Amino acid sequence: MDAFIDFLIQWGYLGMFLSAVLAGSVVPFSSEAVLAALVLPSTGLNPVICLIAASVGNLLGSLTCYGMGRLGRMDWLEKYFHMKREKVERMQAYLNGRSAFMAFFAFLPIIGSVIAVALGFLRSNIWVVSASMLLGKVLRYVLVILAARGLVNLMI
């Protein structure tokens, strides 16, 4: 996995985007590690462009989960994504009427994919869900950038 992360880091902005797409989908991957490495002053990359690539990529990854839920094929979710029917149904019951608020938390590891799938099952408004998801993802990545750059400043 470290070799793959190093490969994505070498790709710069595109690597950031791809790692964020993977992390936003059901693939267990840490785009935060790639982002933290890319925003270091020694890379020469613009942190704002890294933030945009990470946020948009992660949103697109989450929207793949939303799309799978929207298809309404529980057998696919169980077979290909190893999601348990009970977990998705519990999340749907909880999300009913709270979709905009809960979409914000789609950045959370593991449960974020389940939230996105459940929102798709509920046929939640794609624009509201996308805006709320994007806000949560941007805030998370801003914190990662601040932490990564702050640690570098502490070491200098």
Rank of each mutant, 00 (worst) to 15 (best):
L95D: 07
L108N: 03
S99C: 06
T43F: 01
L51T: 07
I115Q: 01
L51V: 01
L122Y: 09
A93H: 08
L60T: 14
V117G: 01
A53W: 01
L77G: 13
H82F: 08
A36M: 06
M74T: 13
S124Q: 07
N46V: 03
V34L: 04
I126T: 07
M91V: 08
F105D: 02
M91P: 03
I49L: 15
I115G: 03
V129N: 00
L95H: 05
L59C: 14
E78D: 10
I111N: 06
A116N: 02
N125W: 07
A103Y: 00
V114W: 06
L108V: 08
A103V: 01
G61M: 10
E89C: 07
V128Q: 09
A33P: 07
W76F: 14
N58K: 09
L51M: 14
L60C: 15
G69L: 14
M83P: 12
A37R: 01
T43E: 03
L40P: 08
F105C: 04
A118H: 05
E32S: 08
E32W: 00
T64P: 08
R70Q: 15
D75Y: 00
N46A: 04
V114C: 12
A37H: 03
A37S: 09
G112M: 01
Q92L: 10
G97Q: 05
A36R: 10
R70G: 00
S62F: 02
G120N: 06
M91T: 13
K79T: 14
G57S: 09
V129L: 00
Y80H: 13
L63K: 06
G72C: 11
A33S: 15
L77V: 10
A36Y: 11
A93W: 01
A53T: 15
H82N: 13
L77N: 10
P109D: 06
G44C: 04
L38N: 09
A106I: 02
V117T: 03
E86C: 04
S124G: 12
A53G: 04
A116G: 02
R98C: 09
V39I: 13
G97S: 12
Y80A: 14
L60R: 15
T43D: 02
C65Y: 07
E86Q: 11
L45G: 03
